[in-house]
Design a protein around this nucleic acid. Structure first.
Lengths: 131, 131
DNA sequence: TATCTGTTATATTAGTAATATAACAGATAG
DNA sequence: CTATCTGTTATATTACTAATATAACAGATA
């Protein structure tokens, strides 16, 4: 899986890495049970510090995406859908609200906003099929 | 307009203030041409530093929500819809992508995600009618 | 026995968030 | 004119996060 890090970006390195790994899990490019690269290898490949990679893995582990395995290292979890709790839905709402409020101010219609979301969703669904 | 600040929150104070002011503009509670409270007054009311309020106003000004007026202070802008550029749409997409990827991983269906967005949109539309 | 792994620890640098305090010039009400 | 409010600017300090460098330790493996 190709991962790119932008050292000029305002987005923290560990977040850039995190979103790309989650996307890989979403599309199935990183399949259930598949081990991720080791800290040292990935940090060397990306040219960043080992602890920055560890921080990403730690968060993914805490959010249920990964499990640490004595022999394989970091392994992609299955059963992720079990994590869609009411609390998650509530948090998602709070996170989306500012974006929708801004779009509304800028005159974006509900239909256009929905279309953007659907397009992003379908991108993932298509990726999931091509495995 | 009622504004509440949570000093315990992980969200920076200036962002808490910013999102609430934008929501006020979205719903029309803060109408076009209406002046906002002065730095000193608002910061005293909220119990935070003047420069924190200024930082919020500065960003709102840069994003086109406000104009500084010699006599009135910070005034709400009209013509916000003119700001919906292609660049904005692109940025919005990039900002939404991580949330959608996460929701997808957690097994949330496209329809449920859309329903959440629509509900948030309609909240604003209703607020806009009651003026 | 080396070597790779994840883990943990310490220290340092840089940037942001937030504060305190102070001073200055423009606008305004008495 | 004077006092007061406004936005603006500047300096300094505290706290936290992001990211790095470096090192050491124990478990797994070839």
């Amino acid at each position: 899986m190709l991962i790119t890090i932008d050292l000029q970006s305002e987005i923290p390195l560990y977040l850039q890495l995190k979103t790309q790994l989650i996307k890989g899990i979403a599309t199935g490019e990183l399949a259930e049970g598949e081990p991720l690269p080791s800290f040292r290898q990935l940090s060397a490949d990306l040219g960043i510090n080992m602890l920055t990679v560890k921080k990403t893995y730690d968060q993914l582990k805490q959010e249920g995406y990964l499990t640490m395995h004595r022999q394989k290292g970091a392994v992609v979890n299955g059963q992720l859908h079990a994590r869609m709790t009411d609390q998650y839905v509530l948090t998602l709402k709070q996170q989306l609200a500012p974006f929708i409020t801004e779009a509304f101010c800028y005159g974006m219609k509900k239909a256009q906003f929905t279309a953007i979301c659907n397009a992003l969703y379908e991108e993932l669904e298509e990726g999931k099929e091509n495995d």
